[in-house]
Design a protein around this nucleic acid. Structure first.
Ligand SMILES: [Mn+2]
Ligand SMILES: [Mn+2]
Ligand SMILES: [Zn+2]
Ligand SMILES: [Zn+2]
Lengths: 141, 141
DNA sequence: TATTAAATTAGAATCATTCCTAATTAGATC
DNA sequence: GATCTAATTAGGAATGATTCTAATTTAATA
């Protein structure tokens, strides 16, 4: 009996696994991994400086490209304070940002349990909200 | 009896009245007046274009100076959406901003009566909050 | 291995905003 | 009104985060 050749197995040996449909190149991996272990909400330049240790040839443009790709695929979040350089955050839970003027540090702020922000806002009915941003500035006393 | 000369009256003829301690020059007046009658949260350039009708020689740098002075003296508020050009708002009540993606317009959003935003945030005690910013993006359905 | 598409790189360009500097103006004092 | 001083202005240059461009490299697929 003639032997049928089995269809080749789907390749499982992808060098770069995807996250949220985003192909993870070496550069994206490094950016992602760094942000995951970081609570400080670094800027693109902070990321660049740090990533260069592992990838000395990486360019700042690539860091911006990686950050944008990760943001676009909802893997990280971009955070803006007034007109300062953008910062990046790997905390995907709904949260706000507190900018401590004394130390210059930024802290994630959670909502009290059971609270939905839209509950307290006076919005017209049927409003579709795609994104909410809450920013605080002050001192941690 | 010798007549004493009275000390001169304090001048009441100040050409430029102050608002919140800010001397109101002609340029600042025009910027302020324009913003007071505007709900659209215009950019510095929007203000510039419009003010030139009354003050053809005004410079964009002066518009920025005026806006900064007015913001610094709490006469108007500066509003930022991500990294777009800053916008300016003459509504001094505590409110957030809704960016309607469909039309590109910006709308003030009030809180429901009796609600204080800090009530629903999980902040460490004794935190001093100097400023809160709430930004929404979506569609007015 | 050859083909093709996607990603990266370095540097140039963009553009909102800020800075600088000289000229003008306003306010105070005579 | 003249004089002094400080604030404001106009206009142009500089800044700086981000984006764009063109060339190169890498990855996926055949
Ligand atoms: Mn602010
Ligand atoms: Mn946003
Ligand atoms: Zn965060
Ligand atoms: Zn407003």
């Amino acid at each position: 009996m003639e032997m049928k050749i089995q269809p080749t197995q789907p390749r499982t040996t992808e060098i770069h696994e995807e996250i949220n449909g985003l192909r993870m190149t070496r550069q994206r991996q490094e950016v992602y991994r760094f942000l995951m272990g970081e609570r400080s909400h670094p800027t693109a330049n902070d990321v660049f400086i740090r990533i260069k240790e592992a990838l000395p040839n990486i360019s700042l443009a690539t860091v911006y490209n990686c950050l944008e790709a990760l943001v676009q695929h909802n893997v990280i979040r971009q955070v803006n304070f007034d007109r300062e350089p953008s910062r990046y955050c790997s905390n995907l839970d709904e949260h706000g940002h507190f900018h401590d003027e004394t130390t210059g540090t930024i802290h994630d702020v959670k909502f009290k349990p059971g609270i939905t922000l839209t509950d307290i806002l006076d919005l017209p009915p049927h409003t579709v909200i795609k994104d909410i941003e809450i920013t605080l500035r002050g001192q941690l006393a």
